[in-house]
Structure formats: C-alpha cells, structure tokens
C-alpha cells in the first residue's frame, strides 16, 4: 500500500473569464521512504496540486478527484476538521519563501512549539525540549537563543531550517517540499537540500520534492512526474526518465541541461511559452511548441495512459518500440 495515492486530481479557479484549469488529471503514488519529484515550469500547477492535497486552497477553488488516500485513509470522505488534523501530523509541507512563511509576530520557538502542542501535546517543559532538539537536528546553532528569535532576525537559510524543524515537529509520514531552495542563496541551496535528504532518510519519511531543477531530480528522486500547463504529461522512475524520456517535453527539458548539451554549442531552448487561460490549443497542450508534433497532435488531446510504472500523455512517444497505446 502506498503512503499517498492520488487519482485524477483536478483544480480549477473562478476568474472573470470563466474557470481556469490550474491542474488537470494528476496521478501520484508515494511509498514510505521514497522520494517523488514533480518537475515543470512555473505555472504548471505543481504547487497548486500539492496544496489541494493539503486542503490549503481558498474555498473558491473547485477541486475534483477520483481518489485521495493517505495511509489508506480516504481524505475525500473525511470532514474538513479531521482532515486539518492530518496536516502537520501525517503530512507536512514546507514552502518556497521561508521568510514570509513564518509569522513575523511570533518567535520561532513559539511557532514550532505550536505544532507540537497541537499534535503531540505534553508539558511545556517537554515541548521546549523537543523544540530545542528539532532546532538542533536541522542544524541551527545555539538553539536556546534562536528559540526566542523573531523571523526577521534570521537569514533565509535559517528560516527554511526553522520551517523544516516545524514540519518535522510531529514526525510526519510524508513531507511535501515546494521548491524549498528556490528563494535562497546558491551556497545555501545545497545545504538545505542535503539536510532535507538526510532527514528524509533518518526519519524514513516519504518526500515529494517540487522543483524545476533537473539536476536535483537526477540526484535524489526515485520517481519523477513531469507537468506541463497543469497536466501531468509523463511519469517514470528516474533512471528511465533520464535515459529514455517518452514525452517530447521531457526530452526537451533534458536537452536544455548544460551538462547534457554537446560542448561548445548553444544550449537548446524550448521555443514559445506555456499557454495561458485564453490561448489554450485545441489539441495537445504542448503541440504548439513541440518539434515532433503532427496533425493529430493539433486536433485531439492525448489521454493519460498507464503502463505499469509509467504514465504518459502523448500521441507519438519517443524512445519506444512498443506503442504505449
């Protein structure tokens, strides 16, 4: 049984010009102790999909889903209050902007303590001990002093460490990290990522890593989901994805990696931009930018098809002898 299983998750937001489909047909499975990476350009609905899993979206959002289970518990059948309790307890999430994700009016210690109080309880003394312990394992020096620090007194890297400590407060089974290093300095990025991976191993958590850094994906993940314009276009184990990408978009992303490009040449880019709400093509959403697109691609949307561990949404997959259809 997988830790988290998501079937056909879609999210739409009301706008002045009708519904905007931010996420369309996402299928995920994460096993305990596994790392799943979700990659895609900004605006491809990576974060929105995960916020839907955490039930963090505004009430105006329209969320549809065939199945949403965590440890076998059906989230869709659960009352909102009970579902909220899973947040921070079973699933925890850390965000892109650590500085603005911490409440400026409360000390770091207080904010971590709050999570412990809600999920684990215990006396004030026990909780403080735990906060200090957490601060220590995320590598914050001088935890006793930092306990009383306000978020504005800490750097971005420190804030993200504090966020991680907060996320770990109640020993979650699954941690969702939404581009945890994007807003940080390059030197700090590697440290934070390393910390996350170390903690994931020692705590035996499942980890969903949202990123647009293919290099990070190659080093860390077991499974990779590629998203484009809200749609899941491909899912593969990491080895297969990097060696035999089936979707042209995945292939193009990989070709754009500096370490993969032939030396001395210009880096290949993907022409055009992600379609917005108004200029959605009728066929495959990637067809206007796809170098392999054919007539069918412009006319008909490909369906998401599954073949054991692989999911794919393409009429003419690459690197394959058998036809997935």
């Amino acid at each position: 049984m997988s830790l988290l299983s998501v079937r056909n998750l879609s999210v739409a937001f009301p706008t002045q010009h009708g519904w905007f489909q931010a996420v369309e047909g996402i299928h995920l499975d994460v096993n305990a102790g596994d790392i799943l990476a979700i990659v895609g350009e900004s605006g491809s609905g990576k974060s929105v999909a995960m916020m839907a899993v955490m039930n963090l979206l505004p009430p105006t959002a329209r969320i549809t889903c065939d199945e949403l289970k965590i440890e076998g518990q059906d989230l869709l059948a659960m009352p909102a209050k009970q579902r909220r309790k899973l947040n921070g307890g079973t699933i925890a999430m850390i965000f892109q902007e650590p500085m603005s994700s911490l409440n400026p009016c409360f000390t770091v210690g207080y904010q971590i303590d709050e999570a412990i109080r809600i999920h684990l309880g215990g006396s004030k003394k026990e909780r403080t001990e735990r906060v200090l312990h957490l601060l220590e394992i995320v590598g914050i020096p001088d935890p006793r002093r930092r306990y009383k620090a306000y978020p504005h007194q800490m750097s971005g890297g420190m804030s993200q460490r504090a966020m991680i400590a907060m996320a770990l407060a109640a020993n979650p089974k699954l941690l969702i990290a939404d581009e945890p290093t994007t807003a940080l300095d390059v030197t700090v990025q590697a440290q934070i990522l390393e910390l996350l991976l170390k903690l994931q191993q020692t705590q035996g958590m499942g980890l969903i890593l949202i990123t647009h850094d293919m290099g990070v994906v190659a080093e860390t993940a077991q499974q990779v989901v590629v998203q484009y314009a809200g749609q899941q276009v491909e899912k593969q184990p990491v080895f297969g994805l990097f060696n035999q990408p089936h979707h042209p978009y995945t292939a193009a992303l990989l070709d754009a990696l500096p370490e993969r490009a032939p030396a001395g040449d210009f880096l290949p880019t993907i022409q055009g931009i992600v379609p917005g709400q108004k200029d959605r093509p009728t066929g495959c959403l990637f067809s206007p930018r796809c170098t392999h697109a054919q007539a069918l691609c412009h006319e008909q949307q490909p369906a998401l098809v599954r073949n054991s561990e692989q999911w794919l949404r393409c009429h003419y997959p690459l690197n394959t002898v058998e036809v997935l259809r």
Partner: peptide, 15 residues
Amino acid sequence: GEDYIRTAYAKGLPT
C-alpha cells in the same frame, strides 16, 4: 492572504 497563514493551516492549527 499572507504566506504565514498558509503555514499555520499546513501546521494543522484549528481555524
């Protein structure tokens, strides 16, 4: 609309 409100919900705090 601030990020830290989202964090508070993600932490599992009651409304």
